[in-house]
Design a protein around this nucleic acid. Structure first.
Lengths: 187, 187
DNA sequence: CTAGCCATGTAACACGTTACATGATTAT
DNA sequence: ATAATCATGTAACGTGTTACATGGCTAG
């Protein structure tokens, strides 16, 4: 029972959207998949090789002097079918994020209240930064890319990020207030 | 620059809360940390060994006939200090969950609308199940464990789960409506 | 002239899951 | 009987990050 490697399909999918090299795949991932699927070069290059081995992609290798060969990848018919299959395959389980802050909070009784409040304040700041990032990406898309057919789905994934981040922000603010009140009661 | 292994501290922390064996640690994790920090036996037993090697815990080994030795772990003073340090160390970065559904949605233009709507419906169902689970855990805590000092923080971590899950549910419902309308416009 | 981007790749390591191995006790 | 729970552990595997190696081109 070997699980499916989704990163493989992420890369395969990007091959359809016009990316042809490992480098440009990495760029697109950083720009648009980063908030729900990070991929490093250490995965991309070996995976592209693997896709070729499996017949899901072809590669045109152009020698260049003093530089590594330029490699241009293209998805095959077989690759397109495999991607279709994967897209239709039901999502087995919803993700459970590992959350260091919650882990530390769980051991709250081992800490002073001020340490916890400090952690929460830091976290809140980062959440707000993330939310702002989402907003600016959203603006960029609506301004420049309305013509692009994929932009609808890009907006939808961003919306998910915005909503869950906003919920985390609310939680953070409520929790800070709650713990502040506990502190005052002690005094 | 080696990153900190937080799972090590999760286990160390549970040693304080009264867990003494690998088995009981696993039970407590499954019951109360599971929605933000999953740990398997394959990690627990080697980590406990490591904690002893580092002087953060001691182990009392009781031989038993026909069974593996019973091992009872206890945190040391050094271990407590290490835990304190970790609790106070700032959370470096907020987690980015890997989300298979969003990945598939990102390639929405490669699919028919009905396939997407089906995926979303399945996902929504799972989110609602998760929310219900959170509610019942919460009820269990408020009914039975109000006396326990750690329960406040347990409730707080659960509240995070509830809020973000509810946000995801909202997103799911809104997105389904949005895509249904697109489908109707086509007809 | 130097910083950053373009461009490809590998090796070592860290983290985590799963399957397997073993076997007693207890509840149905 | 048989299923579940108690209880400990390892080995193989899969996934992913980081650091390193190489070097040209371009903009400030």
């Amino acid at each position: 029972m070997t699980a499916i490697n989704h990163t493989k399909y992420a890369i395969l999918g990007l091959l359809i959207t016009g990316c042809r090299s490992g480098y440009s795949i990495k760029q697109l991932i950083d720009k648009s998949l980063n908030h729900f699927w990070k991929v490093s070069y250490g995965q991309i290059y070996p995976t592209l090789k693997q896709l070729v081995d499996e017949g899901y992609a072809t590669v045109k290798q152009t020698p260049q002097d003093g530089k590594p060969d330029k490699k241009e990848y293209e998805i095959t018919q077989e690759g397109k079918l495999a991607l279709q299959d994967w897209l239709q395959a039901p999502v087995k389980d919803i993700p459970t994020e590992k959350n260091e802050l919650l882990l530390k909070l769980f051991f709250g009784t081992e800490q002073t209240n001020s340490v916890i409040l400090n952690q929460l304040a830091q976290y809140l700041k980062k959440l707000k930064e993330r939310y702002t990032t989402y907003l600016s990406i959203e603006q960029m898309i609506t301004e420049n890319l309305l013509a692009h057919s994929g932009s609808t789905f890009w907006i939808i994934t961003l919306d998910y990020g915005k909503r869950t981040t906003q919920a985390a922000i609310d939680w953070c603010e409520v929790t800070i207030e709650k713990l502040k009140n506990v502190q005052e009661e002690k005094e």
